[in-house]
């Protein structure tokens, strides 16, 4: 079906809206010095840390987020709406506030953190684990919301059919439910990963900023803006290029050809 002309025009504006800032970055990028900025020790360290932490955050989001989405989609209990709102609150919370809130919960004097510190000698602030915690905090809701929506759309009778064929709940989940929601799961995981990769506010507040330990790419970009905007642009472009490659690659691989909807 063809889109009407006005819709096309608005769509074109929307594309330009997203493309132009990127073009602006490319326009201002110091191409001659780019390579030296890129290969500088600090940049590579921050990039590596960013990738490691964001992948951990994505993994944690899947491990905890899928069961949470399942519970929200499939069970009914008083206050479920409130629980859902609670679990997605970090999407709307200013990340810096999220970081402060994490202090109050997991910091050295926090609700739980004081016992982690006292009993297990575990401190999250100023550690790489703290970065992962901060990123997971802001990223997981993206996965939960996406997966929950997919679970809600799924025909429950397909799972019933699996049960009558001798499949346990767990086998049904693995072999029927999970494959059926796989596109949503991948989309949710990618969104979470992208959010974690770009995370700034909660990370710098909760985990601080130290090269090699907690200084991820966005922090490095922000700090280099203070002194060397050219370097900041190069680092930002690297971050964008990686994200772009992953998003495009995954879309072709997972969303392009196959649409799996259980009938």
């Amino acid at each position: 079906m063809r889109l009407p002309i006005p819709a096309l025009a608005f769509a074109a504006v929307a594309v330009a809206f997203f493309a132009l800032p990127l073009v602006g970055l490319l326009w201002r990028a110091p191409w001659s010095g780019a390579w030296s900025y890129l290969t500088a020790d600090g940049a590579l360290t921050a990039l590596r840390l960013s990738l490691v932490c964001s992948l951990w955050a994505t993994a944690l989001s899947i491990v905890f987020g899928v069961p949470l989405a399942w519970a929200l989609a499939r069970t009914s209990f008083p206050g479920r709406g409130a629980v859902r709102a609670l679990c997605t609150l970090s999407m709307v919370l200013p990340p810096v506030v999220g970081g402060v809130a994490l202090f109050f919960a997991l910091g050295r004097r926090g609700l739980i953190g004081q016992y982690l510190d006292r009993w297990f000698d575990v401190q999250l602030p100023f550690t790489t684990a703290g970065v992962v915690v901060a990123q997971t905090f802001v990223a997981m809701p993206f996965l939960v919301i996406t997966v929950e929506a997919a679970l809600r759309q799924l025909d429950l009778r397909v799972e019933d059919a699996a049960r009558t064929l001798g499949a346990s709940r767990w086998y049904t989940f693995r072999r029927v439910t999970l494959p059926a929601i796989r596109p949503a799961l991948v989309a949710g995981a990618v969104l979470s990963w992208a959010r974690a990769l770009g995370e700034f506010g909660a990370t710098i507040t909760f985990a601080g900023n130290f090269p090699g330990t907690t200084q991820t790419m966005p922090l490095a970009v922000y700090l280099s803006l203070e002194t060397n905007p050219e370097e900041a642009i190069v680092l930002a472009l690297v971050l964008i290029a990686i994200s772009f490659a992953v998003l495009v690659g995954l879309r072709d691989r997972w969303f392009g050809t196959r649409t799996t909807v259980a009938a």
Partner: peptide, 17 residues
């Protein structure tokens, strides 16, 4: 930690971290 601004240092100390 190398904070991005001075308020970050203040809050890390006042919060006890």
């Amino acid at each position: 930690s190398l904070e991005q601004n001075v308020k970050g240092v203040v809050s890390k100390v006042t919060s006890g971290e």
